[in-house]
Amino acid sequence: MIGELSYLIFFLIFVSIFAIAVLGLNLQWGFTGQFNAGVVGFFAVGAYAMAILTGPTQPRLPDQAFQVSGIGLPFALGLLGAIGVSAAIAYVIGLVTVRLRHDYLAITTFGIAIVIHLVTINFESLTAGTLGFVGIPRPLASTFATPFAHNVAYLAMMFAITGAVFWGLERIVRSPWGRVLKAVREDDVAAIAVGKNADRYRLEAFVIGCALMGLAGALYAAYIGSISPFDFLPIMTFQIWTMMIVGGSGNNRGALLGALVVWGLWTSSGALVSQVVPAKFQAQGGAIQVILIGLVLVGTLLFRPRGLIGEEPKVSRYVD
């Protein structure tokens, strides 16, 4: 039983990591209508910021002039740093892209994610390149005697952080600020006509959303303890989008639910295939898993186009 519990804790840690990123995306797409197709890029920025700020010195290859690592800050500062760095990068990118809409923004942000990927591969003095950044301190790991206790503690911390993010977002999207975001999403010309600076609101939502993705990445790095550019593939952007769509975009509870359901489906379908498919066809089983995932997504879009829990029609608790 302890084994099952141990797996469940591990699974929920991953769910909460993804949930934070989904909440970030939900602010951008669900509330503001910004098509960010570069989620994984900001996730990677956060992960690398955490690694560089808190990690040990990485081996320097003979042809490398210098190696920025071994700063060795404590975890909390690494977390703040990761949020800060991803917010700063998002701010710069946001300034340039704030006037882009829909597919134009999507293409641009997708390109930015590729650029970030190439930087992680090639800027070895900073990121350790394709070698991967290893030995990132895992917070709470040394305080607890067993891996199980460490996982329980990390999960508790994840719940606290995810809860805080959720609460904060619920507050701001129900505030006047949040209502402007929806106005911008629905009709930005109308929003501008009533005197709202649509670009500013878009930029703010973009920066906050990306900072949350960075936070998720940082928590991933600190949990796993080693990262490599190949951990952050474009498919992760797709996963996070799927979580938001299945859960219900424009609803923060939907974002949490989507992370749970989609990651659960993603992983349990693999376990299911390995149990059900006869040994002879195991090597073909992977395809079945992908088909299963695809079917559920298409099914959601067909039968629950607004997601499992869609957006609430009410914009304020003061309205009946």
């Binding site: 591990f10 699974f11 991953f14 991933y220 796993i224 490599s228 190949f230 951990d231 593939l233 498919i235 992760m236 993603w266 992983t267 693999g270 376990a271 295939v273 390995s274 149990q275 195991q282 090597a283 089983g285 992977g286 898993q289 992908v290």
Partner: peptide, 15 residues
């Protein structure tokens, strides 16, 4: 018991 990691690290770790 063969698990497909889909060439993705998080999936491989979960498996």
């Amino acid at each position: 018991i063969l698990r497909d990691d889909q060439t993705q690290t998080p999936v491989a770790l979960d498996a």
